[in-house]
Amino acid sequence: MVNENVTVVIGADRGIGRAIFDGLRNAVSDDGTSDVVVGLGDEIDFADPSAVAASFAEIATRGTINRVVFCFIDESAFTPAPIIEMDEAAWDAAGERSLRAALITFQEVHRNIADGGRVVLVLPTVGAVGVADLVPLCSAVEGVRVMAKAVARRWGARSITVNTIEVELSAFILGDEPVGDRVLPAVATLGASALPAGSATQDVVGLIDMLSTDAGGALTGALLVADRGTVMQP
């Protein structure tokens, strides 16, 4: 078992993280490769260094960690609220906690990932466009995204790549789940997507696969916006 390649999906219990976890796991069984896909979700407090360290230590016994997909944003960040109505605890939960979780997780990834490994963050596009009543979420997303860029520069000497894929907020929250009765935060965008609608999960899993190829090894610190041409950042 220790010779197996392991992919770890952080934030695998819901939304896009869950969908990516399922997609990568299915891909393993479809093509007959022996990669192990491990999901870390609500059972872990990602803002607790000892809990994250213990989880990675356990995963490392299953094989070589050569790919990590980070999709974690604290759930409280998705509840819209004006900042003037927040107390410090609410601000922390909706914004700063996700930043700490990213920091702690990246530190543990560095200790456990193999040289040449691939780290992919999946985040919502809200940080790029800004959304009223989601200020802590937008702050956290931009902070995490640029933290990853700094990490990409630091880990390049080990040939570890760190890239970010951004998807629309609804896709991030829902993944492959139907919206049902859930009320999603309103996001002002630059308009409709240029391309016809499709599965954000398939789009993202395809990009993760691309980033995992030899050719993908030339990309690091990059931002890939998988929103079918909605934001089109300048």
């Binding site: 914004g95 466009v129 200020v135 937008c138 702050s139 931009e142």
Partner: peptide, 11 residues
Amino acid sequence: KASQRGFVRAL
């Protein structure tokens, strides 16, 4: 500092 840019856009 990046978090401040997200803050600015949203606020």
